[in-house]
Amino acid sequence: MTLLIALTLFVLTVFLGLELITKVPATLHTPLMSGSNAVSGITLIGALVSAGSDHTMLTTTLGFVAVMLATINVVGGFLVTNRMLTMFAGWKKRRP
């Protein structure tokens, strides 16, 4: 991927993101934040390659720690978002 293509991708996705997420009701501010935060744990896939490629001791160690941090971010983020959203849905069902 050339730098220009990467930059194009970056800029277009930012615009796409701004279009996708306008007018979010306040109730969803926290879930949106924690859910999108879990998505930012995508850095995990880079960490996997660093940790698993046995290049040098240093890069493997950095990768190993990165995998742990990113996994906490990803698993914790999606789960806690799900917990909040289930809570929101819970009382909806109980109410007639």
Binding site: M1, A6, L9, F10, T13, V14, F15, L16, G17, L18, L20, I21, T22, V24, H29, L32, M33, S36, N37, V39, S40, I42, T43, I45, G46, V49
Partner: peptide, 20 residues
């Protein structure tokens, strides 16, 4: 990393954080 998925996912989150 020259990885398009990181660029896409990261900038989506960047945009939503910016809106909030």
């Amino acid at each position: 990393l020259d990885n398009p998925l990181l660029i896409i996912a990261g900038s989506l989150v960047g945009a939503s954080g910016l809106i909030l």
